[in-house]
């Protein structure tokens, strides 16, 4: 009961923090409104998908360092396939990219299970492999995204202050996560994360569950990669700064490094908070380089705090 309260308390605390950050933004920038929310939602989208991807594998007791590289592969694949293609084919291309994401994640998971090398080493090696694959697909930024997909992430949805990209992000994550959470597989993912041996003895197939968790991570990465390309209109083969940000947001969102705890709601709120902090610094006309340093300091501090908390929990 107290643990349940504690978990909800964490999400509630984050929500309070988010509200505070919004109030602060409104104070320093009285004109902050629908357009501000729209640009915030669009900046958040790739980070949110990266965080969701990371959160799933961390819940399963692993970590995936190749998140940013897989996003780059998905982004360039989408841009290359949709370049000059009609609407019908671009829908097909989108599905194909999502399939590629699933496949990349499944390869990561399968390598971890079959080589018996720790996840951190395998995904470090795969970080370079996927980076190379992205470079092979597209040597320099280029390609094009289907116009209808670009329009999908722009403008408001129903009411003026609800950005369409935010709705899109929530729907995409919920469509994967909600059924999963309630399914047998979702339960198994939490089980292998919290106690692998106990899960094994209760009849959970560890290897298959782990591969599935990594495949879902890859799927979210593919969505994230497409969302980057949606924002820029082209494919970018060099991975962005999503790895560190996703780990920090997952930890800040209450996903314990080591596995078994947390959900996706907390990390998503954490991502929005982190993006809003960055936006506030831009609004206060802080030098972007200094803003990067501050952001890095926040992320490292969060990860350090997470480490201390995890150590406390282990004791």
């Amino acid at each position: 009961m107290t643990r349940l309260l504690g978990r909800h308390g964490w999400v509630m605390g984050l929500t309070a923090l988010l509200v505070l950050a919004f109030v602060f933004t409104k104070v320093i920038q009285p004109g902050f409104g629908a357009s501000g929310l729209d640009s915030l939602a669009r900046a958040t989208m790739p980070f949110a998908f990266a965080t969701a991807a990371m959160a799933v594998v961390v819940i399963a007791g692993g970590i995936d360092l190749s998140v940013a590289s897989m996003m780059a592969v998905a982004g360039v694949t989408a841009a290359v396939l949709m370049d000059g293609a009609g609407t019908g084919f671009s829908v097909l291309a989108l599905l194909l990219v999502l399939g590629v994401g699933l496949l990349m994640g499944a390869i990561n998971g399968a390598l971890i299970v079959f080589t018996r090398v720790p996840d951190i080493v395998v995904t470090l090696a795969m970080l370079f492999v996927w980076e190379g694959v992205a470079l092979l697909i597209l040597n320099a930024p280029g390609g094009a995204i289907a116009p209808w997909l670009r329009e999908l992430g722009r403008g408001p949805f129903l009411v003026e202050w609800l950005p369409r990209s935010f709705v899109l992000m929530v729907v995409c994550i919920a469509i994967v996560w909600m059924p999963l959470r309630r399914s047998r597989l979702g339960l198994s993912i939490y089980a292998i994360g919290s106690d692998e041996l106990a899960a094994y003895r209760s009849g959970v197939s560890i290897g298959r569950t782990r591969i599935a968790a990594y495949a879902i991570c890859g799927l979210f990465c593919a969505m994230g990669g497409v969302s980057i390309s949606m924002a820029t209109g082209i494919g970018e083969p060099i991975p962005g700064p999503y790895l560190m940000a996703s780990v920090a947001a997952a930890v800040l969102g209450g996903v314990m490094l080591g596995g078994g705890r947390g959900a996706l709601l907390g990390p998503i709120i954490a991502v929005i908070i982190l993006r809003l902090v960055r936006m506030d610094m831009t609004l206060m006309s802080v030098d972007p380089n200094i803003a990067t340093i501050v952001e890095g300091l926040i992320m490292v501090a969060v990860v350090m705090l997470g480490g201390l908390l995890a150590m406390r929990a282990a004791r």
């Binding site: 390598l111 080589t115 090398v117 080493v121 370079f128 492999v129 190379g132 694959v133 992205a134 040597n139």
Partner: peptide
């Protein structure tokens, strides 16, 4: 060999040797 293949090779070497 293009840069992409080079990175893939390095990654695979690390993975293979560790395995």
């Amino acid at each position: 060999i293009p840069e992409g293949t080079r990175r893939i090779l390095f990654g695979l070497i690390i993975l293979a040797v560790t395995t």
